[in-house]
Design a protein around this nucleic acid. Structure first.
Length: 115
DNA sequence: GAGGTGACGACCC
DNA sequence: TGGGTCGCCACCT
């Protein structure tokens, strides 16, 4: 299988997926929090890029639970404009205008929960 | 080989 | 308070 460069081929990416999968239902996390937990603070873009290939790996990661630090569903364009919001709403979250309400309450910090 | 892009974040004015 | 700019690192052209 060598030769094909998949995002998951990097340990960093795989670690990102692992953390995202650990996000409990009804909770959300941020790109920066995950990057920071992995020791890549400042490289939040890499986490977002990892999510770009999240649909190509098995099992799929709940990337809909990952939003930017403002609680805005920046990745909805990659999921499906309504798909990402519906998934989160079904988990009990309230989203208005692509913005998660009570974001700080549903925010799940891996560094604080996983240690 | 080099430049531009990107599902972000923090700093500066 | 709000808008603009830079930095981060990997991928694509």
């Amino acid at each position: 299988m060598a030769g094909k460069k998949n995002p998951a081929d990097f340990t960093f990416f795989d670690d990102v997926y692992d953390v995202v999968r650990l996000i409990p239902r009804g909770r959300v996390s941020t790109y920066g929090a995950i990057a920071r937990y992995l020791g890549a603070a400042g490289s939040a873009r890499m986490v977002g890029w990892a999510m770009n290939g999240s649909h190509t790996i098995i099992p799929p990661v709940p990337a809909q639970r990952v939003v930017n630090r403002t609680g805005l569903l920046t990745g909805r364009s990659h999921f499906g404009e309504n798909y990402m919001q519906e998934l989160l709403e079904e988990e009990g979250l309230t989203i208005i205008d692509n913005q998660i309400q009570n974001f700080e309450k549903v925010f799940w910090d891996p560094q604080k929960e996983l240690i």
